[in-house]
């Protein structure tokens, strides 16, 4: 079971990384092109603002789960380091479980909101503005998976070579 979960998660991570690279590239290319267009051709791309923001928002929510496992999200570990090891472990798992709950709530509510506001269009490109919320849905669901994995299979049971990032 654990192996399947791990395998699925590492596949999802791989896809997320590809999407993330795409978003970052779009962001850089669009913003830089906008500057070039302005100075070289005295022209401007109508959709530059919306497309680059869409790529940016997607890149944030896609990247949040990728930092979870490496402990990139800053926290205060002062107290936890002073607790006895067993207790510290239980506390950490509880905190991760709470964060998992949060991500589940956010994912669910983001689906609700995306559905209810689907009729809202963006101004310069004719797509639903709720594609911004889709980023929240995808990112939070992915984050929930990572957190659940950490609750079920805490890091300290495994060596540093554990194959997910």
């Amino acid at each position: 079971m654990e192996r399947v979960f791990t395998l699925v998660l590492s596949r999802v991570d791989a896809v997320a990384r590809v999407v993330l690279l795409g978003c970052m590239t779009v962001m850089i290319v669009v913003v830089a092109t906008q500057v070039l267009m302005r100075y070289a051709f005295n022209a401007s791309i109508d959709w530059a603002d919306e497309v680059s923001r869409l790529a940016f928002v997607w890149s944030i929510f896609i990247a949040i789960p990728l930092g979870i496992r490496e402990g990139a999200h800053v926290g205060i570990e002062l107290l936890i380091n002073k607790l006895p090891r067993k207790l510290a472990r239980q506390v950490t798992r509880t905190m991760l479980a709470l964060a998992f709950l949060l991500m589940c709530v956010v994912t669910y509510e983001a689906v609700v909101v995306a559905y209810e506001t689907w009729s809202e269009r963006l101004g310069a490109i004719n797509i639903s503005s709720s594609y911004f919320f889709v980023a929240v849905i995808v990112g939070s669901a992915h984050a929930a998976l990572h957190l659940l994995h950490l609750v079920l299979h805490p890091l300290d049971e495994h060596g540093p070579e554990y194959p997910i990032d």
Partner: peptide, 18 residues
């Protein structure tokens, strides 16, 4: 409380808002 117990700050903020 949550932050002191080591929950990453972003999640501590989110859970307390929840």
């Amino acid at each position: 409380g949550l932050a002191a117990l080591g929950m990453p700050l972003a999640f501590s903020l989110g859970v307390s808002a929840l």
